[in-house]
Nucleic acid binder design. Structure first.
Lengths: 247, 247
DNA sequence: ACTAGAATGAACTCGTGAGTTCAGTTGCGT
DNA sequence: ACGCAACTGAACTCACGAGTTCATTCTAGT
């Protein structure tokens, strides 16, 4: 799961310090490193890369500035490691949601499973962490394009691939019409996240839970009208509020 | 098509400044202001807000630094004006594309009109200007939330509203099933821009024209399967590669 | 030609923040 | 008790960039 090639020069304190210690854990005292990375992400996400200052990160981590530089070479690697770690965490969260489709009863209406999924994804997507990740990655595309790609991979590409797997099974089982699963997954995510991005106005507005739910349902609704097999439930008379969403 | 700054109007510093010749560079007062704003957007978009320096903007505009401050108070207002101007231009471009739906023959297959629209929107969306706008607005959300909202309004909200108008007409004319036009417009944009964002990997990858076209067609395809009225053409046997299988 | 004002280049002030240095402190293993 | 290595706080260097000042130069309007 660890992503970043771990041995940047000067990555850790005891990396290959002196004579081989049978320690196992290369770090000296405690897990300052994790605290530092967590603090770094927090500060970066509220200030942005350029506006964040290392001193503040150190304070937030409860650590002295030289300690920060003792663990990570410079501001850039601080940024990269913090962002990648958080992207990994988000990926795990999202993959867990997608993988839930696996243990659904085989004869269940796909709508129920997909609605569940959409709800969970909507939650993740609008969460503080996800928003900050997208913002930071997007903002620094010019400076760290490889980082942006790596984040995009974890936040979009790989979740889509995982969903494509599940959709392929549904399609094979006749619950979805025959289709390109990659494309279908792409559309599923688009129908969900596009409206969310718009509703939250780039994150400047808090989307109420009810609207979140409605958006997820509308996404599933449209998705199924396009992708459900003919025999299956792909019709809900109005599309205005999703299924049962009379309001 | 005014792409970006017209190279160096004149010649840059040191050229006209000699002891004798008033040749070549007419450094008279023209619309320096526009040149400055265009240059500012160009520099901001390749460097980001914090990394951009006013000196570079001045050079790109073919102007001295004090002149920049003579027209705009400080870096922040430079940023705001540059971004808003560019957002206005993009809005006009997008609205023009949407308004084209107006003068389509009333009995035409909506698919043709929507496909045309999707192609044009895809072009705009992936253009240098649109990408830079999204990136800058997104990046500075924390620092200038009002600016981000204003950009989002011009880039997403208002185009969606305009499209909703057109979709309402189509729906009323029986070419689309009865639906909430706002929601439909939201879904249309989502189906288009979501995949584009993903394919371009946040702008780090250039999307070939063919893929762009295929993505647009796939979006329209799904949209129509969900929103076409029953009598109309909402079926293309395979969804794998869009209609006609782009190669 | 004369004048007013916009524009210029260069040098300046000043704040900020990255990264370092260092002398001293703490905690753990032996 | 000793020593090692991480940790600390504070003060430091250094580069960079926002914004200003100024003497000068150019252009337009009359």
């Amino acid at each position: 799961m660890s992503s970043v090639a771990s041995s940047s020069p000067g990555d850790g304190p005891g990396g290959s310090r002196g004579s081989g210690k049978p320690k196992g854990a290369p770090r000296g005292r405690v897990d300052k490193r994790e605290a530092i990375l967590r603090a770094a992400f927090a500060v970066f996400s509220r200030r942005g890369y350029a506006q964040a200052c290392v001193q503040e990160i150190a304070e937030e981590a409860g650590v002295a500035k030289p300690t920060v530089y003792n663990h990570l070479n410079d501001k850039e690697s601080l940024f990269r490691h913090a962002v990648e770690a958080e992207a990994d965490a988000l990926l795990a969260e999202v993959l867990a949601a997608v993988e839930q489709l696996r243990d659904r009863p085989r004869d269940e209406d796909p709508r129920d499973a997909l609605t569940d999924l959409a709800q969970r994804l909507a939650g993740s997507w609008c969460g503080e962490r996800a928003r900050a990740l997208r913002r930071l990655a997007y903002a620094q595309v010019a400076q760290f394009p490889d980082l942006a790609e790596s984040v995009q991979d974890r936040v979009a590409q790989r979740p889509a691939a995982a969903l494509a797997d599940r959709l392929a099974r549904l399609s094979l089982a006749g619950r979805l019409r025959p289709c390109d699963p990659e494309l279908a997954a792409e559309h599923f995510f688009a129908l969900l996240t596009g409206p969310l991005e718009s509703r939250s106005r780039l994150g400047t507005r808090r989307v109420p839970a009810a609207e979140l739910r409605a958006t997820a349902e509308a996404a599933v609704d449209v998705f199924l009208r396009a992708y459900a097999s003919h025999g299956d439930s792909a019709d809900s008379a109005d599309s205005g509020g999703g299924r049962g969403g009379g309001g």
